[in-house]
């Protein structure tokens, strides 16, 4: 072991015993706004998930006064039975607070579900395309180009009519339009990695393509995928609420933050302040997600030493 003893003298870069995850968390925490955002998202998710437990009224039944244009302002107390509507009621007398809570279930879950599906499909397609190249790549990327050259919002409305508005329609459409972006991102990352020597080395050791992709290429592409996915959540929530606001998304009596706003718009002249709530929820959620995404981008930046 003559070699070993001589070489031991060479300095080993000193490194604290710290796992990668805790390094990322430490760097993430530096972004105070992102931490606040995380808190906001957590609270909203919790409140929505537990809506069944704490909401005062049925979100689909006009409790205050059935009939058209039977809205109530925030804090309204019904003189006949003493029911109090903290955030008032919507255009046909349904409790806004309860609708918002249930609407959160839909809006947040659409955002998360689409993001998950898009991340999965986009990653698989992008990895296959970037790794194998050639004909497969050409075909897949032509499909991606095609989808990306469809006008997003106009198509969203048209497809919603075709499939019939509803929860799954929205999820399917948003996923269909979302995956190409992610797959391009993953493809680019895989392309830049696949000719690196460590991939060749793994191949030389006898690794299968699947192993190379899942154990080496994807873990090295994870940072951009995570950041992309985070920002996607916000994008999908806005897209869902826009379409629902226009009346082509989640349809009554189910509530989403977008269609609640549309309902309140009908009575905007009489009860303008009620418009604040649904919009504020969308805004806060998306803002928080954007802060989180930004912080993650920094925390996961491969150029910064881990």
């Amino acid at each position: 072991m003559a070699v070993a003893t001589t070489l031991d003298r060479e300095q080993i870069a000193s490194a604290k015993e710290e796992s990668q995850r805790s390094v990322i968390w430490r760097r993430f925490r530096k972004h105070k706004l992102a931490v606040v955002g995380l808190g906001i998202i957590g609270t909203l998710t919790l409140l929505s998930l537990t809506a069944q437990l704490w909401t005062p009224y049925d979100p689909t039944v006009p409790g205050f006064n059935s009939g058209v244009q039977a809205f109530a302002n925030p804090g309204y107390s019904n003189p006949s039975n003493g029911d109090i509507y903290i955030m008032g009621t919507d255009n046909i007398g349904r409790d806004v607070l309860s609708r918002l809570a249930y609407g959160g279930q839909i809006s947040l879950s659409v955002g998360l579900l689409c993001t998950l599906l898009v991340a999965i499909i986009g990653t698989i397609v992008g990895a296959i395309s970037g790794f194998f190249g050639g004909f497969v790549d050409t075909v897949l990327m032509r499909i991606v180009d095609l989808v990306l050259s469809l006008p997003f919002l106009p198509m969203l409305l048209a497809l919603s009519i075709v499939l019939g508005p509803g929860y799954w329609t929205i999820v399917i459409i948003l996923t269909a339009f979302g995956w190409p972006g992610t797959s391009r991102l993953v493809r680019g990352s895989v392309l830049s990695l696949r000719n690196l020597d460590f991939v060749e080395a793994t191949r030389a050791l006898g690794a299968s393509n699947t192993r190379i992709i899942t154990r080496h290429l994807l873990p090295n592409s994870l940072a951009p995928i995570i950041v992309d996915a985070t920002l996607n959540v916000g994008g999908f929530i806005v897209a869902e609420s826009s379409v629902s606001f226009l009346g082509f998304g989640i349809s009554e009596p189910a509530s989403s933050w977008g269609n609640i706003l549309a309902g309140l718009e009908d009575v905007a002249r009489q009860a303008p302040l009620q418009l604040i709530w649904p919009g504020l929820l969308i805004f806060l959620t998306v803002l928080s997600i954007n802060f989180i995404g930004d912080a993650l981008r920094d925390a996961l930046d491969p150029r910064l030493k881990l």
């Binding site: 916000g234 303008p272 418009l275 919009g279 803002l287 802060f291």
Partner: peptide, 23 residues
């Protein structure tokens, strides 16, 4: 700019409409 990017267009539009147009 974070606020601007996160602001849902339709909500911002409605607020402007109510404030500058109606109020």
């Amino acid at each position: 700019s974070f606020f601007g990017i996160s602001m849902p267009t339709f909500w911002f539009g409605l607020i402007l409409y109510l404030l500058l147009g109606i109020q």
